[in-house]
């Protein structure tokens, strides 16, 4: 059974004549342990697809099953729980809370999961160590470089040990070398067994993943696996 599976997924923004079809029937399945790139030009609907896969947005129609569970039937709280325990996000703009230190940013998902503060801080510290930021715990995002901020965001995505990590243009705001390091980090996370979905417009970055899904005009136009990578 695939980890996630969508059938005939559509998303319409607005109503009536001014409405825009962002997704026009997407079908895809991702198995646990896969590393997938979703590629497509801007306006192709790839970001919308990623938001729906990440339960940040709801589809207009179609089915979405995550780990055997019908996501479209979940309530707001159910979706929040799914985002909290089963999904991790990495954004292009990092989306860290600027008032909080790196450690507190990573603690955030644990707080909403109901983990006691002391245990949460310990776990968050461990994950930051794992992404190479063991010496930056008390720094605020403004005091960190772009690459370091993105590592904090990755630590935050990892801290609840989610089944799937979604990254939306994670290297878009980084220079080539730092971007490369982040991609390497994703690669090693995948080798540890994490399922990853990487959304990008850049074919070079998409090539970091063994499976590339191309989205055009709200549909999957290509889905290829490269063996031996």
């Amino acid at each position: 059974m695939p980890l996630l599976e969508v059938e005939e997924l559509t998303k319409v923004y607005g109503q009536g004549r001014g409405s825009v079809d962002a997704l026009r029937g997407v079908n895809l399945a991702v198995d646990a342990g896969e590393f997938v790139s979703i590629i497509g030009p801007s306006g192709s609907g790839k970001s919308t697809l990623m938001h729906i896969l990440g339960c940040l947005d709801r589809p207009s129609s179609g089915r979405y099953r995550f780990d055997g569970q019908d996501v479209t039937a979940l309530t707001g709280d159910g979706l929040a729980r799914l985002r909290n325990r089963r999904l991790g996000f990495v954004f292009q703009t990092f989306n860290l809370l600027s008032r909080l230190a790196a450690l507190d940013n990573v603690v955030l998902p644990l707080t909403y999961a109901g983990v006691a503060p002391r245990a949460a801080r310990q776990r968050a510290g461990g994950v930051l160590e794992q992404v190479g930021l063991g010496d930056r715990l008390t720094h605020r995002p403004g005091e960190l470089s772009g690459g370091e901020q993105q590592r904090v965001a990755i630590a935050r995505a990892l801290v609840n040990d989610p089944g799937l990590i979604l990254a939306d243009e994670p290297t878009g705001n980084l220079d080539t070398r730092t971007g490369r390091e982040i991609l390497d980090l994703f690669g090693s996370l995948n080798r540890q067994g994490r399922t990853l979905i990487l959304v990008t417009h850049n074919p070079e970055i998409a090539a970091a993943a063994p499976r590339i899904i191309e989205v055009r005009d709200g549909r999957v136009s290509r889905d290829e696996r490269r063996a031996g990578l």
């Binding site: 940040l56 707001g76 709280d77 929040a80 729980r81 909290n84 325990r85 989306n95 909403y112």
Partner: peptide, 16 residues
């Protein structure tokens, strides 16, 4: 609002 979005993305419920 942006902060609310971040908090929700990492699992904050409406109630939180």
């Amino acid at each position: 609002t942006h902060e609310i979005g971040i908090r929700k993305a990492v699992g904050a419920r409406d109630r939180d």
